[in-house]
Amino acid sequence: MLRVIRREENGYHYLQTVFQFTDLFDEIGFEVREDNEIRFNYEHLDFSKEEDLIYRAITALKHYSNSDKGVTIDLIKNLPMGAGIGGGSSNAATTLVALNALWELNLSQTALIEIGKKIGADVPIFIYGKSAWAEGIGEILTPLEIKEEEFTLINPGIHISTKLIFESSELPRNSMLFPDKYFDQSRAINDCLPAIYHHYPAMRLIMNALNELNLNPYITGTGSCIFVPKMDAEQSLLLSSLAKEQGWELLPFKSLNQSLLYENAPIAL
């Protein structure tokens, strides 16, 4: 669910949205340095260092804490880039949480979320680590239990600019505020669709093709990734054939109500 309630005077949008985690992930390695240096064991080829949300998280944390420690970073990028599933935001959040522990800063979750929301609107949920109903720009979080299910993620390889979608005159900005914080299929609404379809007409064609297969597709956030619920054998075969023909990437996943960061890492807040 992603609903746009209004545009604030500061230019940000007041949203109501629902977040749930997946078992898909990038992998990040951290090695503490005592020389205050920030170094990377990966090249910044597809994006500059200044655009790297991991780098921005490190510098924001150093500025907030005045830590004199450094770090060397490794990254194995498994998630598709620029596809709207929160890969960069989750990496930034993981960096804040991990370095808070490794640099022995002992900052509270509230403090980390305050740092994180200045890096990106989706960073706080990954620090929070639990499925949630979110409001504001996405930083006002209320825990929410959602059914954990199997899905397939479809990455059509289209890069969508979130900035363009939220600045678009095609974006509705007057959805009714839901007073009750719960989620069911009747609330599986994405207010960004008119703007996405206007600026990226190929997305409408893709969604039409998936709807013709009765796959119940949903665009995640501003896109471009799409997810569909568990399919029967015939639907799975048809989707695989279509994906091969169109050059789409398919990734099966399970939705989770707790982030893998806190399940699989020796980190606690």
Rank of each mutant, 00 (worst) to 15 (best):
I28Y: 04
A98P: 03
H63G: 02
N264L: 13
Y12G: 02
S131A: 14
R6H: 06
G221P: 06
N264V: 02
F25M: 02
K130C: 06
S161F: 07
T59F: 04
T110C: 00
Q109P: 02
L45M: 02
R39E: 10
L215F: 11
A60V: 04
E104L: 06
P266V: 13
D74H: 03
T162M: 09
I154K: 03
C225H: 04
Q20M: 08
K77V: 10
I115C: 03
Y12S: 04
A132H: 05
I146H: 07
K62P: 03
G138F: 10
L193C: 04
D26L: 09
L239C: 09
F166C: 08
L239G: 02
K230E: 14
A57C: 08
N155Q: 06
N264A: 05
R33Q: 12
E145L: 14
V228P: 00
N190F: 08
L141R: 11
E263K: 15
V4A: 04
L256I: 04
E145G: 03
K244W: 00
I113S: 01
H13G: 03
F227V: 08
E114L: 05
N211A: 01
S65V: 05
F47S: 01
N211H: 09
N257S: 11
I5T: 06
L237H: 12
W103K: 09
D68N: 13
L153Y: 05
F151I: 15
F183C: 05
I219G: 00
Q16I: 10
I206P: 02
D26A: 10
L107P: 00
R6P: 00
T220E: 09
A233V: 14
Y14W: 11
E37K: 14
E43V: 11
T222F: 05
W248K: 02
E50I: 06
N106F: 10
E104R: 14
A93K: 03
R39A: 03
V97S: 01
N190C: 08
P217I: 12
A93C: 07
M207T: 14
S65G: 02
L141W: 12
S161A: 06
E37V: 07
